[in-house]
Simulated scan of single mutants.
Amino acid sequence: MTGTRCTIIPGYLLTRIAQAEPELAPAMEFTLRDSADTRGRREIEATRWPGGHAPLQGGILPATMPGQAPPDTRREGMGSATAVPEEATPRRRVHDAEGGTALPGRLVRAEGDPETGDPAVGEAYDGLGSTWELLARVYGRDSLDDRGLLLPATVHYGQSYANAFWDGRQMVFGDGDGLYFTGFTRSLDVIAHELCHGLVQYTAGLTYVGQSGALNESVCDVFGALVSQRVRGQDAQEADWLIGADLLTDRVQGRALRSMADPGTAYDDPVLGRDPQPAHLDDFVDLPHDADNDNGGVHINSGIPNKAFHLFATGLGGRAWERAGQVWYDTLATRGRIPRDVGFAGFAAATLESAQERYADEPEVLDTLREAWAGAGLEVG
């Protein structure tokens, strides 16, 4: 990962709200400043605490010590995948920041503890568990690092904090501003999306700028959608393919933050503007690679690979987390398959390599994958 902390709400939306709503400007500006002040946190943690296991409050020790080589948890190929024992469980710890910004905050629920009566705590706990279940039971991966990594989270972060993020070692959720965004634990796909930035961190480590950054965002949208669909028992055809639908208040003229099925149509709001995502490479948005321009449009151009995955999953039919999701997981988690700065064309070619390796005797998978990428403007194979 690069030095920019990934957040589910891009800065350009927070800026628009701050400009349009004076009473919300302090909260929006703090959210933006907080993100800027903590840029580099993940890279620093990865350097100081290889594998990202910095010690947290409450006696949690790092899995590796400074000076040790960082673990490479990508696998050599599909044959090296290991099953997670049936008796294995996630290791969750949910903390409460109580409106402050000190992390991780007060521990309020550890693995196996009963519900606390706080909906945000329960939603965070369940969302972490559902993401762990997808990785473990479908892809044979034991937590983000494939080594049983602790999954810490903090709720009630800041005052009217309108974002959620993975900071390199834990999840953090704000309660939203209440006017445009609700509490950020309410959306399962958002929890899974942000937690899967940790999966990217421990696998391909996609650089968070330009096309590789858009792929970083897209991969997390993919797994966020898959977690949600698996929990709901939905197949690819019946799923809505929306990301963040549960975050928007009734004030917003829109359905969600993003639509994987139809990028560019998630919202069209007087304040937020119109969803800028393209669905085809011909409409790629070329922006400067800096924070003021969404790191080269990482939240914008992710619509292109999102559309490709949607076409792939719906073209195959059935459960998207099975064959379609497996190809994406193999591409991310197989050592040497993609470099950190991979572009769209390189990633598309790598998914075909993954599909050929695993589904050589199922030509419809390869044909559907080629057609899906072509539908998003990329010819592969």
Rank of each mutant, 00 (worst) to 15 (best):
G381P: 08
A313T: 02
Q19D: 11
E357Y: 03
A239R: 09
T73K: 05
L188W: 08
G273W: 08
R319I: 07
G168F: 01
V190P: 01
Q211V: 03
G99Q: 10
R258N: 09
R41S: 11
T131C: 07
Q229L: 00
K307A: 12
A97C: 13
A97L: 11
R109H: 01
G67A: 13
D367Q: 13
F309M: 07
L242C: 02
V231R: 15
A153Q: 00
T331Q: 14
T64E: 13
A350D: 08
S35G: 04
L103D: 01
G129R: 05
Q57T: 08
L369Y: 08
T64D: 13
S302C: 15
R169P: 00
S228K: 08
E86T: 11
R74S: 06
V298M: 03
A308I: 07
A313C: 05
A204T: 04
R48Y: 09
R230T: 09
V271L: 10
E87S: 10
G176T: 02
I17A: 11
R274P: 08
G377K: 04
G336Q: 12
D72T: 11
D292M: 07
I44W: 15
A162R: 03
G336Y: 12
Y329Q: 13
L61C: 00
L257K: 09
E357M: 10
G183P: 00
G336C: 14
L366C: 10
G178W: 12
R41W: 04
V155C: 07
G148R: 04
Y157K: 01
L56D: 03
F284N: 04
L316H: 00
P305D: 03
Q229H: 06
D118A: 04
H193F: 07
D235K: 10
V108P: 02
G254M: 05
R137K: 09
Q211C: 01
L352Y: 06
V271M: 10
R39E: 15
E98F: 07
D290T: 15
P50W: 09
R370V: 07
R5L: 13
C220G: 01
D37C: 05
L149P: 06
D292R: 05
E45P: 05
A164L: 09
P22G: 06
P10A: 12
P85F: 02
A36P: 01
H156C: 02
S143A: 15
V222N: 09
V94P: 14
P22W: 03
P270Y: 12
P363M: 09
H310Q: 03
L179D: 13
I300T: 11
T185G: 10
G99P: 07
G79S: 08
F347Y: 14
S212T: 07
A20Y: 11
G127L: 10
S130T: 00
L287H: 02
I9N: 10
A83M: 06
G127S: 08
N216L: 09
F347D: 08
L135T: 06
T4Y: 14
A349I: 00
V327N: 10
A313P: 07
P71D: 13
Y208R: 03
Q356W: 06
G273C: 02
L352G: 04
P119A: 12
L199C: 01
A124R: 01
F173S: 08
D37R: 05
T249L: 14
